[in-house]
Design a binder for these strands. Structure first.
Length: 230
DNA sequence: AACTCCAGCAACCGCACGTTT
DNA sequence: AAAACGTGCGGTTGCTGGAGT
């Protein structure tokens, strides 16, 4: 079962597991290129890393996925798509491979969902939330047409309910009341979920909604992934 | 008992990205 | 700035064991 380079492939034996575990316990995780030499294993670094991360790590949870875990996977997949590492990061003890395999075998067919891709959105520059930020960080128009970094927290609705939290609320068909108001109280964007998304024009790496491409607005390069990892 | 089919899972592979030189 | 290197991720493959015929 050795490969052309003489490196062993295929299923791991108990002895190999012991060697790898002993090596990691002695030297710690990381420096995977050194692991085959240090452990005496005739395996490539990738194989060693994968075996450790997916099987040998002591905090790995085995057994059936609970209904809570399945529910969370479905919600996160709806939000993130096939970002298995991110999804697994929210499930203590589960690996990305576990989650991916579970999805592919149990959920793929039953959970035909529309993935909400974090499309860059345009927000009015004078939203109350952003105005506060802009006052602290300088005029948002001064640097570039776009913001290089998303704000650390998403805007809140009037009642303080985060639209991001709503993604996990489980309220099917829930009409999120995330109404952004400008200084005069005029609603700029009616809702996150049910709004009719207008046509958008790509400007550089951002999208500017049609009819809103002038300097009265700025484009907000919304990176949900960073928000989730914050 | 022998064979086929298939679900579940472990592992491999290629690529992308970040860091170092 | 660019090449080399190291690491992590996601798609895919292939092995294994159980169920069905």
């Amino acid at each position: 079962m050795d490969g052309p380079s003489g490196v062993r492939k295929g299923a791991w034996t108990r002895e190999e597991d012991v060697l790898l575990r002993t090596c990691i316990e002695k030297y710690g995780e990381g420096k995977w290129h050194q692991v085959p030499f240090r452990s005496g294993l005739n395996r490539c670094r990738k194989s060693c890393r994968l075996r450790w991360l997916n099987y040998l790590r002591p905090d790995i949870k085995r057994g059936e996925f609970t209904t809570d875990e399945v529910d969370l996977i479905i919600r996160l997949h709806k939000l993130l798509g096939n970002r298995w590492a991110l999804i697994a990061g929210r499930l203590p003890g589960r690996t990305s491979n576990d989650v991916k395999n579970y999805w592919n075998t149990h959920l793929q067919e039953t959970a035909k969902v529309t993935v909400i891709k974090p499309r860059p959105r345009t927000f009015y520059k004078n939203l109350s939330y952003l105005k506060g930020k802009a006052a602290k960080e300088g005029d948002v128009q001064s640097a570039d047409h776009t913001l290089s970094k998303p704000y650390s927290t998403p805007p809140l609705s009037d009642d303080g309910f985060s639209w991001l939290e709503s993604l996990f609320s489980g309220k099917e068909g829930h009409k999120e009341s995330t109404c952004f108001r400008d200084g005069s109280g005029k609603e700029s964007i009616s809702s996150f979920w049910d709004e009719e998304i207008p046509a958008a024009t790509k400007v550089g790496e951002t999208f500017v909604e049609d009819n809103e491409s002038d300097w009265n607005h700025f484009s907000f390069d919304m990176d949900l992934w960073d928000l989730l990892n914050a």
